[in-house]
Design a binder for these strands. Sequence first.
DNA 1: CATCATAGTTAGCCAAGGCTAAACTATTTG
DNA 2: CAAATAGTTTAGCCTTGGCTAACTATGATG
Lengths: 161, 161
Amino acid sequence: MSNDPHFSQRPSKTSLQSGDALPPIEQHARQYEAVRSAHETELIEDYVELIGDLLLHREEARAADIASRMGVSQATVSKMIRRLNELGLVTNKPYRSLFLTQQGQAMADASRQRHHIVLHFLRALGVSDTTARIDAEGMEHHVSDETLAIMQRYTETQENR
Amino acid sequence: MSNDPHFSQRPSKTSLQSGDALPPIEQHARQYEAVRSAHETELIEDYVELIGDLLLHREEARAADIASRMGVSQATVSKMIRRLNELGLVTNKPYRSLFLTQQGQAMADASRQRHHIVLHFLRALGVSDTTARIDAEGMEHHVSDETLAIMQRYTETQENR
DNA sequence: CATCATAGTTAGCCAAGGCTAAACTATTTG
DNA sequence: CAAATAGTTTAGCCTTGGCTAACTATGATG
Ligand SMILES: [Mn+2]
Ligand SMILES: [Mn+2]
Ligand SMILES: [Mn+2]
Ligand SMILES: [Mn+2]
């Protein structure tokens, strides 16, 4: 029964070198940490960006509109608004529409800008509009400043091709 | 006190059309739903991919190695392994190293391939190696098949520039 | 101006994904 | 072969972000 794969607990000494190696442990861990950290702020950014967009395009940001656009229940939105308020990003009075604080406005603007760069980049690459919108909504939170700058440059050169 | 912004609950009738409009409600909601759905599978995919990589490069996948590479406690890994087992992705016996099931192997291979396409695309774009690795780790889960195909094509044309 | 549809809130539930501390097992080593 | 060390598991805690159901407030309308 020694061909049961569940055998050794300690590493085997005979590890033959393979094609492309794993990154060093520390660097590898930092990759995943970056992802976890992006996920912490991701939803906050999307809410604040959406609230900013609703204020721009619809004059006001109502919880019901946020809920239908997010595809989420009103209770979920209500709870999130409390959090945004505690974080100093929005102003709200019970049963009234929302507004962004200075800090919230800044986050909305930054998020919208980053989102647009990613979206336009994907379209410049040749991705269809609907797909580009879906992919950009998730990708935007994982794009570093370095990559963002390169995306923007690429899009510009494509526009006057 | 009517210049208090927290005023109307219902939408105002005078909504002037602005620059680029919001997407239709249904489509907008589907964007966020796609992101939430990606987040459900994301971590699973990363674990399975990592386990596959450890089996390839290190001959075995030990919980302690997963923990240090994920940058997470061993308890977290232990709990996750139980979940992966329940999902039919890994085989494990108490205190022994892990192995992938058929289904787990398939997921690992698919994830690794997608990850590589995104990573190589970013490098082809001109992003530095370290940044490309960080961004790819998050982006990979939000890239549609359509976008992936375009990324792959772009990378190939750049390689024999 | 009373009613009622719409909007917002609250309470209580759940799963996922982190953590620490403590208990347990396997392997190596003296 | 006993002890020490390294690895694994379990218990119990926490936050986030979903949900439903029940309740409350607003404002449009008859
Ligand atoms: Mn966005
Ligand atoms: Mn987003
Ligand atoms: Mn990956
Ligand atoms: Mn990943």
